[in-house]
Nucleic acid binder design. Sequence first.
DNA 1: GTTAGCATGTAAACAGTTACATGATTGT
DNA 2: ACAATCATGTAACTGTTTACATGCTAAC
Lengths: 179, 179
Amino acid sequence: MNARTLCLAVLFFGEASGYEIRKLSTDGQFSYFVDASFGAIYPALNKLESDGLIAGRLESQTGKPAKKMYAITDSGRAAFLEALTHPPAPDVFRSEFLLIAMCVDLQPRDVIRRAIDTRFAQLQAEIDQLQTIAVDCDHPGTRWVVDYGITCMTASLRYLEDNRASLEALAAPAAAAAE
Amino acid sequence: MNARTLCLAVLFFGEASGYEIRKLSTDGQFSYFVDASFGAIYPALNKLESDGLIAGRLESQTGKPAKKMYAITDSGRAAFLEALTHPPAPDVFRSEFLLIAMCVDLQPRDVIRRAIDTRFAQLQAEIDQLQTIAVDCDHPGTRWVVDYGITCMTASLRYLEDNRASLEALAAPAAAAAE
DNA sequence: GTTAGCATGTAAACAGTTACATGATTGT
DNA sequence: ACAATCATGTAACTGTTTACATGCTAAC
């Protein structure tokens, strides 16, 4: 899913600025299954506006810089709705941690331990974030997705907890460690 | 993780051709947490060879086109080992299905059902694939990772099974469906 | 005879990240 | 003083996908 579709999705829920869309995709409701940077969002918004799928207006604020609020147009709504009807492409999952885990026998134990600790902390942080979103979420579809995320990440965390010892045991003995 | 690192990882385990590396990343041991196309792998291999991290030689076969087998060099081994010592970057997860699920109230029930069926079949296929890999896998690190994958995907599948009815119930009534 | 698998590679197009530039305000 | 948050945007770079080009063999 690209930055374009993400912007349309957010704007379908209500008006937002580019900054707010990025926050939503990094820390908010969308963070579990998308991620987009400024460099992807701002150009996407400009393109969408010139295509007539969204409309922007400047909103001045006191004590903060002015922001450009975007609203979805009728053609934007139609385009998004149409895109949603297509059967979903397979989920994308990529993990550097699992590559390290797979090559466990090539690294000394402390490197493996550090990698596990890092991954553990990342998972815990993501679960906490989803839990925070869940408490003040009144939109049923969003709630369903957030609960899905919490379930899957908790299963992942539990496996890591229960099996980290067996992985650490496979690490290269300190003597045979890479130069 | 990029195509370069994937190639080094595969070649660390033994010699392989570009075609075989792609197969491994699409259907094999690596499929759970990476994915790379020909267009990414072949240029990566050429770059790695000109950088001296791998060495290629042509192997002719009877009844099949010749293939270019690559072997990792000492500097390639060192580079890969060094890359593995860095703490892992966060996992990447992207899901079109979850965007559809989140916007469940915008689509008629049959569209939601089809999306769930599609996702369900994808998950089942990936679990079956991992299970096939698990049976004849004698490398402990790989086995640990494959078991991780099976655990996480099974948890995901179970959530979908147990909660698909509640999601379908949130779909837009047929009358209010998009144009 | 046609599809699928084996096998390599290129080129155009597209997408995305990272770093930079700018600047006000608020909190430590 | 310094860092963080709010706010927008550009430009260079990197990486990847997609489609194309080629050609043989084996199975249905």
